[in-house]
C-alpha cells in the first residue's frame, strides 16, 4: 500500500465579520492508492472545508491555512505556486461538488465544459477531446451522448447533471477523486446508480477516492476506511468494520445509534442532543463534551489526544485513557460490538 495523499496537522480559519471561525483544528489522515476513505460527520464539522483545502479552492479573501501540510505524492500542495496548482487540479486530483444544480456553467454547452480539462491537461486536439468527452458521457450512463454534448445544463435533469459533473471529474483519469456528498441532492435510485458507477470506475482506473457523506448506510457500501469528523477535528478513524462494529468515541456511538437498522424496529431512533460547537469560540476541552453523557472533568479542561485502538484504528476520547472508568456504550453499539466479536472469532 502506497500513500498517495497525506494531511498533517491542518488548521484552517475563516476571518468573518464576527471574528475568526476556526473551521479546521488539527486534522490528520492519509489516503492509500486505490482505496476509498469516507469522511462522515454532522453539518458544519468541516468536511467540505477539508476537501476544498486539498484542492486549494477555499476563498482567498477570507480563509487562512494557519498550519499543517497536505502532501500529494510527497509534494506539499499548500506551498505550490498557482500555476503548478492549476496543473494538479483536474488532472491529478479532481472533485465532485455537493450541488449538481449549480455546479455547471449555465451559459456553456455541456460538451465544452467536459472538453475543457481534456484539452488543457492532456493536450489533445479539439476533435480528439470531443471523442473522448462523448466516451466519458457514455461511461457515466448518459444516453445519446452526441446529442447531449451540444446541450446546455438546464436541459439536463439533476441526476444527469451530477453525472456530467462526475464525467468532468473523471475526464483526465485523476489519481485522487474527492466526492463531496455527490448523491445527497439525488433520489435514492439514482444515488445507487451513481455509487455503482464510481465503484466501477475506481476498479478500472485505480483511483483513490475521498467520499464525503452524511449517510452512514452509503459508507458501509463504498468505503474501505472511515474518518469521523466533529467540530473541525477527526475524532475517530479506522476501517469500516472497526468504526461500525467497534466504535470508541461517544460521538461515533451517537451516530451509530441514530442509524436505522433492521433490528432496531421497535426502539425509538436516537438523536444526539444539543448542537454542534460554535467554531467562533471553540471550547477549551473536548468539543463534544457539552453533548456527551459520558463526559468527565478532563473533557472540559483538555482536548483528548488520538488514542490507538489497533494499528488501523484511532479515536480521540479520554475514555480510552488507562485511568478512565469503564463505561457501557449504548445498547445499539453493544449489539454491534458483539456481532463484531462473533465475526472475528468465526474467522
Amino acid at each position: 500500500m502506497t500513500k498517495i495523499l497525506e494531511v498533517n496537522d491542518l488548521h484552517i480559519s475563516f476571518h468573518t465579520f464576527s471574528g475568526e471561525v476556526q473551521a479546521i483544528r488539527g486534522v490528520n489522515f492519509d489516503l492509500n492508492k486505490g482505496e476509498t476513505l469516507a469522511i462522515v460527520g454532522e453539518s458544519g464539522s468541516g468536511k467540505s472545508v477539508t476537501s476544498k483545502a486539498i484542492m486549494r479552492l477555499l476563498p482567498e479573501s477570507n480563509s487562512d491555512i494557519k498550519n499543517g501540510e497536505i502532501l500529494f505524492e510527497g509534494k506539499d500542495l499548500t506551498k505550490l505556486s498557482d500555476k503548478n496548482m492549476q496543473k494538479v487540479r483536474g488532472k491529478d486530483i479532481s472533485m465532485i461538488f455537493q450541488d449538481p444544480m449549480t455546479s455547471l456553467n449555465p451559459t456553456m454547452t455541456v460538451g465544452k465544459q467536459i472538453i475543457e480539462p481534456i484539452v488543457k491537461h492532456q493536450k489533445l486536439s479539439k476533435a480528439a477531446a470531443k471523442k473522448r468527452a462523448i466516451e466519458i458521457l457514455e461511461l457515466v450512463g448518459i444516453a445519446n451522448p452526441e446529442e447531449r454534448f451540444k446541450q446546455y445544463p438546464h436541459q439536463f435533469s439533476g441526476g444527469m447533471r451530477q453525472r456530467v459533473v462526475i464525467a468532468i471529474a473523471l475526464a483526465c483519469n485523476p489519481k485522487v477523486l474527492i466526492a463531496d456528498e455527490p448523491t445527497t441532492a439525488l433520489d435514492v435510485t439514482i444515488q445507487a446508480q451513481i455509487l455503482e458507477l464510481m465503484k466501477d470506475l475506481q476498479k478500472k482506473i485505480d483511483t483513490s477516492i475521498i467520499f464525503i457523506t452524511h449517510d452512514l448506510g452509503v459508507v458501509a457500501n463504498v468505503a474501505d476506511r472511515v474518518a469521523v469528523m466533529y467540530g473541525g477535528k477527526i475524532v475517530e478513524i479506522g476501517t469500516v468494520d472497526e468504526v461500525f462494529y467497534n466504535p470508541q468515541h461517544p460521538y461515533t456511538w451517537g451516530l451509530i445509534s441514530s442509524m436505522p437498522t433492521l433490528d432496531t424496529e421497535d426502539e425509538e431512533l436516537y438523536a444526539i442532543p444539543g448542537t454542534p460547537p460554535n467554531l467562533l469560540h471553540p471550547p477549551k476541552g473536548d468539543a463534544f463534551a457539552p453533548r456527551n453523557e459520558y463526559a468527565m472533568k478532563i473533557d472540559l479542561e483538555e482536548q483528548p489526544p488520538m488514542f490507538k485502538v489497533s494499528d488501523t484504528h484511532y479515536a480521540a476520547t479520554w475514555l480510552l485513557h488507562p485511568d478512565a472508568p469503564k463505561v457501557e456504550p449504548p445498547p445499539a453499539v453493544q449489539r454491534r460490538q458483539r456481532q463484531f466479536l462473533d465475526i472475528k472469532e468465526g474467522k
Partner: peptide, 14 residues
Amino acid sequence: ESDYITLAKAKGAS
C-alpha cells in the same frame, strides 16, 4: 463566487 466558477477552478482553468 458561484459553484460553477469553483468547478472551473477545480478543472484547472487559469
